[in-house]
Design a protein around this nucleic acid. Structure first.
Lengths: 142, 142
DNA sequence: GTTGTTGCAAAGAATTTGCAACATA
DNA sequence: TATGTTGCAAATTCTTTGCAACAAC
């Protein structure tokens, strides 16, 4: 995984990913910063168009993919679609609301310990892990 | 989630899912039973064709989807494709080899406890969770 | 100015659907 | 026999690629 340092300047992530700071990429990045839910390329493209800041679908895909590869975005899978979300720190897990798609990051030392233990027991060399909780957040459950 | 009881007879899963026991479905099910890795609809379709037990791609999709909805299959996401794997018990987690795609099921009481605790702390009503470990198995790391 | 980026149009790939022929219970 | 199932062909949807115009450094 890449060195995804906390983001301060608006284009830190772009620098980190070795990408030029274009209007389109900054737009995508700003939109990601303003939300606390995950979003698909298709939805983001539509939103930006409606917001009068159009960015080509191709470019949205390319930007999201690049940022995700550089470790600045987390990716989820919603049905057949890939959803992305900006993440500040390198390692965490998620608490996802299935109604509003809000995503909260949660620390999980307990999970880390569990992962290490299980992998060792089965003779696996760990390359990664994933631990997400799905539910209905307080706001959505009324 | 459906009542995915342990499977004994070859067509228990089909019964459980309310599906008729057709040659195609039995073929798909048998193939799933014989493997310990996860498989995509496309790959499974190709394999069956090459094995001289052809099943239409559409049918493979429909069968896998039905079985997964009934809780007899777990689904993963490999790149843009959905991969499936037969699972015998209702609740477990996975240890996945990224080289050979082998999947081992692992119990995880520790994870269950962690899930409950975190969700409660954030005011979430839990609908599900996922905890998978990815790595290289002993055989593949050689 | 050089090199990376954009976005349209087109291609590619996974998955779903309509429907007539067919198999199961 | 009644109803569920199959699978082809076609349609949908998500994603990627070719390429010429363009923008960042």
């Amino acid at each position: 995984m890449a060195t995804a340092a906390p983001l301060q300047a608006p284009d830190d992530a772009l620098r980190g990913a070795g990408l030029r700071a274009t209007r389109q990429r900054l737009t995508v990045l700003e939109s990601l910063r303003e939300r606390n839910d995950s979003v698909t390329a298709q939805d983001l493209h539509m939103e930006l168009r409606q917001a009068g800041e159009p960015v080509g679908l191709t470019t949205v895909y390319r930007t999201l993919t690049s940022l995700a590869e550089a470790g600045f975005l987390d990716t989820f899978n919603r049905d057949g679609e890939q959803a992305f979300r900006l993440c500040g720190n390198t390692h965490h897990h998620h608490l996802v609301c299935e109604t509003c798609n809000k995503v909260e990051e949660i620390g999980a030392d307990e999970v880390e310990r569990w992962v290490t233990k299980i992998a060792a027991r089965h003779g696996y060399q760990v390359t990664g892990h994933r631990a997400d909780i799905f539910g209905i957040c307080a706001g959505c459950s009324g």
